[in-house]
Simulated scan of single mutants.
Amino acid sequence: MSRGSILIVGGGIGGLSTAIAVQKKGYDATVVELNSDVHSSVYGVGIIQPMNALRALDMIGVAQDCIAAGYPAKRWGGLYATDGTFIKEMPGTPVPGLDLPPMNGLTRPKLHEILTSHAVEAGVTIRYSTTFAQLDDDGDGVDISFTDGTTGRFDIVVGADGVYSKTRGYVVEGEVRPYYIGQSAYRVNIPLLPEIDSIILQAGPEGMAGLVPIGEDLAYLFYNAHMEAQPTPESGDDTAQKLRDYLAPFDGFMGRIRDEFIDDGCEIVLRPEESLIVEAPWHKGRIVLLGDSVHAITPHLGQGAAQAIEDGVVLADCLAEHDDLAVAFREYTDRRFERCKLIVDTSLDIAEWEMGRKPGFDNIAATDHVLEVMAQPL
């Protein structure tokens, strides 16, 4: 017998993970995704899966498929100076009792394929090319008008519709929007070289460059560039040259990557880095929020997707433990808020340090602290 029906708005990483988690707890989950198919909602090139993300994925039966399709590293990474001189090893923090790698790198399309496959196998209904037009929570359920002209009624609505969430307006009063932090991230796939066996970070004079293995023969390069104005989608053929200019001060391994692989023909993704933390409560009536809709996290710790996955796992646990939705939602927020706020705040601290506005800040110590906290129970 079903525990109830749940509509999940958004078919991204957080939405699909939540759908799997609640379906396995006995709910009937439906996901609506405005984009047209499994790949159209995928932005970026690759993704870092830290140990805590793998633990959460393991709790919904997905971790091993991600590891098999990705690059399970034996350490978190290492830090290098601009000239390529080695500075410090970053081993990562293990989760007690779990035999999982400190970090797994994976392509975003592959992760979406895995999550979608597991969701469908679990019995989740996924509807593409549609979202809600209107929500009406009458206290006993939520009536939905969909953009494709259909209607429905659900016991619970979960807003997993991203940093510019439409669902958020039904929960949070006033105008709540993310803000641009002054950095934007370049990302581009490159061949996997033997030296890229974990995250390689190389600090530059104006930003951080990094390399992440994401498969048997694939890695990606990222660079957090200081840009006062938020970039718009670029036209023309100068994106690669701009990235090469940013990487010009680098010697060592990053300089080699720049010279050999960053050319006018490579496909570069440039996205602004935005931040947001919504104060509690994250719910109102029968509607609850998760992921980027309440905590948009810049990429400096590789924790954005991890926190969305954790949200879904914890929300499913709380719903299964409490018949009273208000109690379940409060416990969910209580378990998640400080953990997510630590990630948001520390990521911003690292960004400020990279942009030269936080002298003396120890980014490695801050990263190690976050990894230690993330290893603690959910």
Rank of each mutant, 00 (worst) to 15 (best):
159 G>L: 03
189 N>P: 11
272 P>R: 08
13 I>K: 03
194 P>W: 03
133 A>Y: 13
260 E>A: 08
2 S>F: 14
259 D>I: 00
141 G>H: 05
355 M>N: 04
131 T>Y: 12
82 T>C: 15
166 K>I: 07
254 M>H: 11
2 S>E: 12
253 F>D: 02
239 T>D: 03
68 A>K: 15
107 T>C: 09
163 V>W: 00
366 A>R: 12
86 F>C: 05
114 I>P: 08
213 P>F: 12
220 Y>N: 15
336 R>M: 08
155 D>E: 07
182 G>C: 06
276 L>A: 04
22 V>S: 05
75 R>W: 03
137 D>Q: 08
138 D>I: 05
197 D>F: 09
107 T>M: 13
329 F>V: 02
62 V>T: 13
132 F>L: 03
328 A>M: 08
44 G>W: 07
234 E>C: 09
362 D>G: 09
94 P>D: 02
368 D>H: 04
193 L>H: 04
87 I>Y: 08
346 T>E: 13
104 N>W: 01
182 G>D: 04
233 P>R: 10
305 A>W: 02
234 E>S: 15
224 N>D: 12
300 H>M: 14
284 K>A: 12
42 V>L: 13
236 G>M: 07
17 S>G: 10
258 R>N: 11
112 H>T: 01
82 T>F: 10
256 R>D: 15
341 K>V: 00
87 I>F: 09
172 V>R: 08
85 T>Q: 13
107 T>N: 05
292 D>H: 03
45 V>G: 02
37 D>L: 06
123 G>A: 13
169 G>M: 06
285 G>W: 04
239 T>E: 14
248 A>M: 11
218 L>M: 12
348 L>D: 07
